[in-house]
Design a protein around this nucleic acid. Structure first.
Lengths: 143, 143
DNA sequence: TCAATAACTTGTATAATACAACTATAATCT
DNA sequence: AGATTATAGTTGTATTATACAAGTTATTGA
């Protein structure tokens, strides 16, 4: 019956998230949020905190602090917006790009190890189903 | 090629985790960790913080605080261990069980909505692959 | 022009986590 | 048996990610 799958998925998702949160706390690796913010800037180019907060669905203040902390590490530059003196553009630096890239590679590496023994088809299916789940979740959030 | 799937999965996992963490912060729902601790006590019976910390792979101090906070809410009782005066048993209460159950139902409900339109087979596959991923992750942690 | 709005920062709070220092009890080793 | 070591648990302190509320400066529009 349907209930079984839902129960299984609920259980697995809970464990999945908990382990990731727990592990990230321990290992000193670049924090999830910094990674995501850098990725955002790298993919879509410079932006101000409001736009970023919108995109990432976070509070503006949260993004403001994350961005400041990236500026401190010289991973991003804070450029004044000449057309609007209230706002800025955060732009990823060379160093930031390198850091992002090396982080990406590390993640891929780890994930590759995790997926050892999976068939190509299983990997594709897993990615596809996760994506589908995420799309639904994002749609529901944006209401 | 393989790289594509890995990239997709990495991306989806990052987004997946971030959204869940972010959403949980907003909605006032029972915190992930409290839920997991209650579930643990409900499934495996009373235990002390050391055993719980072991099981959940968390620091003892973390579990100690989580347990205290559940005691305050009357979701668990703290019973002295007669055989060892250093230690205690945390036991889920009636109220705690009810709270856990209602939380479970809520989660199932939400998940059911998320999986609307998925075939039975897709759901089974998703659960199975998540479980497989988790098993690997847990194995790797325990080394 | 001046009140309302907008972009951003900073203060304060909460949850989950870790590590380190501490207390009380138990176990072990002369 | 007594001294030392190990164990179970708690508490202090720190970090990360988050939100909401208050504050500052700049822009807009009636």
């Amino acid at each position: 019956m349907k209930e079984d799958s839902v129960e299984l998925i609920e259980r697995q998702i809970t464990d999945f998230v908990r382990r990731i949160v727990m592990t990230e706390q321990r290992e000193g690796r670049m924090e999830r949020s910094a990674y995501i913010l850098l990725r955002q800037l790298s993919t879509y180019g410079p932006a101000g905190v409001k736009a970023l907060a919108n995109h990432l669905q976070l509070d503006i203040s949260t993004v403001s602090r994350q961005a400041s902390s990236l500026v401190e590490k010289n991973y991003v530059e804070k450029l004044p917006n000449p057309d609007d003196k209230r706002s800025y553009f955060y732009k990823i630096t060379e160093l930031g790009s390198e850091e992002l890239e090396s982080n990406r590679r590390e993640r891929f590496q780890r994930l590759n190890e995790m997926l050892e023994g999976w068939t190509e088809e299983e990997q594709e299916t897993f990615g596809r189903l996760l994506k589908r789940y995420n799309n639904t979740a994002n749609k529901r959030l944006n209401m």
